[in-house]
């Protein structure tokens, strides 16, 4: 399973954000680069939420994602948000994953709108990593987490990658080094 960008160009107005990108994504890829250089645009192209102005984006299989925003259904619990993307009922699987990420007790069952930013982020991460998908795009998935919680979430994410291709977008060189894989610097001067 892979994703491939062939001569991909994307413009907003007259400004070229991505210019003739060519890359095949397999295994773990860490995408780094200054703000405003098209990292999130690239993620949106891969997710099929936008179309390139030129070139081709090929994605095999289904995708899952942690977006820049958590995008949880605010009235549903963390468990229900994760189970929403799982086949069947999936509550038990969701509960176990969230517990592994450090959520417990009533944090699992109260509406997502009432969770802290870090708890919401971890619920969004669990949803992406548990979804039946062949590729996962993680746009700054550990932002807002304290050091210890982030380390735990990173280890959990790597374990859950399960041979799928994974694109991690981050500004943190330590996270990039820890994940290993292939490093892709976008728009570096």
């Amino acid at each position: 399973m892979y994703a491939e960008l062939t001569n991909v160009t994307k413009r907003y107005g007259g400004e070229v954000v991505l210019d003739k990108l060519n890359r095949r994504l397999e295994g773990i890829t860490v995408l780094m680069g200054p703000s405003g250089r098209g990292k999130t645009t690239l993620a949106r192209l891969l997710l099929g939420l936008e179309k390139p102005d030129e070139g081709r984006v090929t994605v095999t299989g289904r995708l899952a994602a942690v977006f820049q925003e958590d995008r949880l259904c605010p009235q549903l619990s963390a468990v229900a948000n994760v189970a929403l993307v799982l086949p069947g009922r999936g509550e038990e699987t969701a509960r176990r994953a969230l517990e592994e990420l450090g959520l417990s007790g009533e944090d699992l069952t109260k509406p997502a709108a009432l969770l802290s930013g870090g708890q919401q982020r971890r619920a969004a991460l669990a949803r992406a990593m548990l979804a039946p998908a062949e590729g996962v795009i993680l746009d700054e998935p550990f932002k807002g987490l304290d050091e210890e919680t982030a380390a735990r979430a990173m280890a959990w994410t790597k374990r859950r990658a399960d041979g799928r291709w994974l694109l991690l977008i981050t500004h943190d060189p330590e996270q990039a080094a820890w994940f290993g894989g292939s490093l892709w610097r976008l728009g570096a001067p």
Binding site: G48, A64, F67, P74
Partner: peptide, 24 residues
């Protein structure tokens, strides 16, 4: 619209999208 994009990416079935996103 961000939740609707999420539903599209995760390919949520219509019934789940209706119940979790549209109705609320």
């Amino acid at each position: 619209p961000q939740l609707l994009e999420m539903a599209r990416v995760f390919r949520l079935p219509f019934g789940r999208t209706l119940r979790a996103i549209w109705l609320p």
